[in-house]
């Protein structure tokens, strides 16, 4: 257990290093100039002199590796720099938005789990019958429609037609339902299929037959003996797709004007606000690696064989 944590923390370091180099270079290669944005060149007259001054203030006139080195040096002191647009420290900005995003993603996860598990279990115990067909169709829908489109449909239905849920903003629980559902649904129906496959597999194991032969109740067989083996592949896939989950969160945040990290990142990209973009990418990177670490650790909890075997080596 400690071994894997150590290994993952080392990996985290490597991942972040590579990630920072890539984003740093890519942003410099991308078209657009932050100097013009900062000086609001679209609306005001900007002289060459002003531009040059700001450029040297921001250190843009130096070679790329020097800029990167300086940024890294600051990062080592946990200083992500200041936002070009607001002038506030990037760290504060990120933390403020992170809280709001966590609210959304937690709720989306909750919705995801409460759809995926009952749907998957129902489809498995009724394999071939109508609940299975329904889950199959839902999975097809969930896998094919992009979540911004699902979000638009939901807004049309619940905000425009039925007028029961707000389409944007934050504040109350009614605000969180639509975005969280939009984000959670597409993942949930696909995971339900995975869970169904895992359950069908584990229900055909010999130990299930032996359990039934011992006279165990069917719900115990399902939830205690079969479920645990079936949930592992679902958790694995979730770990792998956590990146696209966070990506989906960005789209959903924009769609529902949810002022979280995603909206912050998109604003920052439009404004070429380099420090904020880099901060966002790093934070997402850390998050992805940590979730994958948790996924790995969950294996040890769910299947004790993994742990003991490693100890025996």
């Amino acid at each position: 257990m400690l071994f894997i944590i150590r290994k993952r923390l080392f990996q985290l370091f490597i991942v972040l290093l590579v990630l920072s180099i890539f984003t740093f270079t890519l942003m410099k290669l991308a078209p657009g100039d932050p100097v013009l944005t900062i000086l609001n060149a679209d609306e005001m007259l900007v002289t060459e002199e002003d531009q040059a001054k700001l450029r040297s203030d921001l250190g843009f006139d130096q070679p790329l590796y020097v800029q990167y080195g300086k940024w890294m040096l600051n990062l080592a002191q946990l200083d992500l720099g200041k936002s070009y647009m607001t002038g506030k420290p990037v760290w504060d900005e990120l933390m403020e938005r992170l809280q709001i995003t966590i609210e959304l993603t937690t709720f989306a996860l909750f919705i995801m789990i409460s759809i995926a598990i009952p749907l998957g279990v129902l489809a498995a115990i009724n394999a071939g019958r109508w609940p299975d067909q329904v889950s199959r169709i839902l999975a097809l829908i969930g896998a094919s429609i992009p979540n911004f489109w699902l979000g638009l449909i939901l807004i049309y239905l619940f905000t425009f037609k039925l007028q029961i849920l707000p389409s944007s903003g934050i504040g109350s629980y009614s605000h969180i339902i639509l975005p969280a559902f939009t984000l959670g649904f597409t993942f949930a129906v696909v995971y339900a299929r995975l869970l169904r496959a895992g359950l069908l597999q584990s229900m055909s194991e010999d130990f299930i037959l032996a359990g039934r032969a011992r006279g165990l109740k069917e719900w115990r067989i399902l939830w205690i003996h079969a479920f645990r083996a079936a949930i592992l592949p679902v958790i694995t896939v979730f770990g792998l797709s956590i990146g696209s989950f966070l990506g989906g969160a960005v789209v959903v945040e924009i769609l529902f004007s949810w002022p979280g990290l995603g909206s912050l990142a998109v604003e920052a990209i439009f404004n070429r606000d380099y420090p904020v973009i880099q901060g966002y990418v790093l934070l997402t990177g850390i998050f992805v690696v940590i979730v994958n670490l948790l996924v790995d650790l969950s294996y040890y909890v769910i299947d004790p064989r993994i742990n003991r075997k490693e100890e025996a080596l």
Binding site: F207, A210, A213, R214, A229, D303
Partner: peptide, 14 residues
Amino acid sequence: AYVSQNYQSFFTPF
């Protein structure tokens, strides 16, 4: 009661 040939998976492994 039932005793199977496959003792490896007579009990639930975890």
